[in-house]
Design a protein around this nucleic acid. Structure first.
Length: 688
DNA sequence: AGCACGCCGACT
DNA sequence: GTCGGCGTGCTC
């Protein structure tokens, strides 16, 4: 920039400051005549900058600088001689409001650029993001990054088609199997906001039922949002909606679309051209207009928890939206989470479940077997199949496909002595041993030292209760045992969406089970101890969810559908599976959590970092009355670095106070220049 | 977080 | 007398 320009700008600046009617700007660009101030949220995730900043709207941008548009602004400028300001980095942001004046006393910097006239940050979306940020002790900017997809200019240039008229109200269809089902749909069409915890019947009809709930909402002139845990489930609901409503009335927001398509779909929602959205996690923020219904399918699935700060959970965001936007809620799944059970217990939501008789007619027959009962067949032995499981598979393979669910290695808990079940521990530091590398060498999860010749310190046995047989080896062994039957595998990196109704063995890790045409003849749920034995508060609930997801793909008992679960028959989740009573299981778990003061009855937050930093934050924080501080203890999953974690627990109703106190303490730590960072997480997913 | 300004010790 | 320590405060 030349000095001549500088002089000119200074003169212009002085001229502008003399004129009182308009806000002053640094450089004297002529401000807009009407509403010359833009209130901006600057896209910097720093907690202590979680506030709006006012900028002057240059006259040249007056038409485009509307609320909700993306802008670029200079931020972090410094004052140099004679009170002039210079520099400042360019940052992205959104205009949240146009105003006549500012309460900021200094001169306003001008907006640097309006990036696009598209008003992407609507008032409702802004309100939601603010609520979510507060709920999770995060900054508005962090949440906005999750909620507003990156701009794609080419997608934005395309016009969105005009909205289609509302469809006719759908028939209840298979919702008639639920006593409250038809009423629920009618309430949606009538414009009410019914809230339900839906214990879905096993079988392949749930995508169509979700589609009918969406159609009922559209028929009443309102929009609907469906969030599913993965792309496979989203594709099924997508297909069901297309079958019911034809194309053009709904759109999908999933990661596999790619940035351009995804933004194009998002814009069609934001522009009001499409009123129904199905999608995965990030779709929870989709700016559906006049939202009448939020559906969350399988809310216990870990995919519903966002891995990015501040880690909002789809279910919680859905509940916040329902409250804020007056929408109905449908929290559905084959199993029921403890959080859903609590919504029922407090009366916030009503149960939407079938009669016992209907459940019995729809669910497969479930048998339990312990793994002490090994098969006689050699191949079955190699695959560690108990005798009855082996027999069930052999019989069912004459009638159709058989699903074999094998826990993933990540689920396998600590190793233990095969004879006395004493956990296998490191002889150096007493840490738990893991079979991480192949080749039978064990490693300590704490100190990393390897152990080649373990023997049990209690009984002297050399045999370990080894890790589960993985999906691949199970497939190999079963392939040998059934040479005439095709063997398919479906796992984390190669998920098989569906298989035919022909006899076949389908080996799958939990969550990757393909749908079978006409349903599986049988399912074997192997190594239940691996799911049940995890040192996690939610282990039982999670095991039941994974089992029911697999068992729900099996034909009804009346058509010969059989499930064999290899697990301790007295365990509560096993009994709930046998009785097909997920709601009862969740209610019992809830009772127990209430007694133990665990979430979701109490609200918790975790504070993780270097020991002194954690202690520091805990001492700084002004905790709500009656907060429990648990720990600090060594952080779970710590890799040598001596991180510690404290848990903070508050009584029901104090969650907002806890989040606010944590945020304030984090800000105070930044102000005090404390170097070591502390991670704060509301609703930590893994509490011992 | 950066990045400035501000007020007290050892150097040209 | 000046250079520079990092304590404190601000960012429209």
């Amino acid at each position: 920039m030349s000095s001549a320009d500088d002089t000119g700008e200074q003169l212009a600046f002085i001229r502008e400051t003399v004129r009182k009617a308009r806000p002053r700007t640094w450089r004297g660009a002529l401000p807009a005549e009407h509403l010359p101030v833009a209130r901006v949220v600057v896209d910097k995730g720093l907690l202590h900058l979680d506030q709006f900043f006012d900028y002057a709207v240059p006259a040249t941008m007056a038409e485009e600088a509307l609320p909700g548009v993306r802008v670029r602004v200079r931020f972090g400028a410094r004052v140099v001689a004679s009170g002039r300001r210079e520099g400042g980095e360019l940052h992205d942001g959104f205009i949240v409001e146009r105003r006549a004046d500012s309460d900021y006393k200094g001169p306003l910097a001008p907006l640097a650029q309006v990036l696009s006239p598209e008003q992407v940050l609507t008032p409702a979306l802004l309100r939601l993001c603010r609520t979510v940020a507060d709920r999770y002790a995060g900054s508005l900017a962090d949440v906005l990054q999750l909620a507003v997809p990156p701009r794609h200019a080419a997608a934005e240039a395309e016009p969105s088609p005009p909205p289609l008229p509302s469809p006719a109200a759908p028939e209840p269809g298979s919702w008639s199997r639920y006593p409250q089902g038809p009423d629920y749909l009618a309430a949606l069409t009538a414009g009410h906001a019914p809230r339900a915890v839906w214990t879905a019947l096993p079988g392949p009809t749930w995508p169509e039922e979700i589609a009918r709930a969406v159609a009922a909402t559209l028929a009443g002139g309102r929009g609907a949002l469906v969030v599913l845990p993965d792309g496979k489930a989203a594709a099924r609901v997508d297909a069901a909606l297309t079958a019911l409503l034809g194309p053009g009335r709904h759109t999908a927001l999933t990661a596999d679309l790619g940035p351009r398509e995804r933004y194009r779909h998002w814009l069609s929602v934001s522009r009001g051209s499409v009123r129904a959205v199905i999608g995965t996690r990030a779709a929870m923020f989709a700016p559906v207009r006049d939202l009448g219904l939020v559906v969350v399918w399988s809310d216990g699935d870990g995919n519903h928890s966002d891995p990015r700060a501040p880690h909002p959970h789809v279910r919680e965001v859905a509940l916040l939206r329902a409250a804020e936007e007056g929408a109905g809620v449908l929290l559905g799944g084959l199993s029921v989470t403890v959080e859903a059970a609590q919504l029922l217990r407090t009366g916030w939501a009503r149960p939407l479940a079938a009669e016992r008789e209907t459940v019995r007619a729809t669910a497969p027959r479930v048998r339990t077997v312990t793994d002490l009962d090994q098969a006689r067949d050699a191949a079955a032995q190699s695959a560690r199949l108990p005798g009855p499981a082996w027999e069930a598979a052999r019989e069912a393979l004459t009638r159709g496909p058989v699903l074999v669910q094998v826990p993933r290695r990540g689920y396998v808990p600590r190793l233990a002595c095969a004879r006395c079940r004493e956990p296998a521990r490191c002889r150096h530091c007493v840490g738990p041993l893991e079979a991480r590398s192949s080749g039978g060498v064990l490693e300590c999860a704490w100190c990393g030292q390897s152990e080649a010749q373990w023997h049990c310190g209690e009984c002297g046995s050399f045999r370990l209760r080894a890790q589960v047989v993985g999906a691949r080896r199970t497939a190999e062994e079963l392939g040998k045992a059934f040479p005439r039957v095709p063997v398919w595998t479906s796992g984390r990196d190669s998920v098989l969406p569906a298989v035919s109704g022909e006899p076949a063995l389908v080996i799958s890790t939990p969550g990757a089970e393909p749908v079978a045409e006409g349903g599986y003849a049988a399912a074997l749920l192997l190594d239940g101890w691996a799911l049940l034995g995890r040192p996690d508060l939610r282990a039982g609930e999670e095991a039941l969810r994974l089992w029911m997801a697999a068992a729900g793909l099996v034909r009804p008992a009346g058509e010969g559908g059989t499930v064999v679960v290899v697990a301790e028959p007295t365990a509560r989740p096993v009994q709930a599976l046998v009785r097909w009573d997920p709601a009862g299981h969740a209610a019992l778990e809830l009772q127990e959590r209430a007694q133990l003061h665990f979430p979701p009855v109490s609200r918790m937050a975790s504070v993780t970092g270097a020991p002194h930093a954690v202690a520091d934050l805990v001492s700084l924080i002004r905790l709500p009355e009656g907060t429990d501080v648990l720990g600090p203890v060594p952080a779970p999953g710590g890799r040598g670095e001596e991180l510690e974690r404290a848990l903070l627990r508050v009584a029901p109703g104090q969650g907002a106070a806890l989040a606010a106190a944590l945020k304030a303490a984090q800000i105070a730590r930044v102000a005090l220049r404390t170097p070591d960072p502390v991670k704060v997480r509301i609703d930590p997913p893994d509490i011992g």
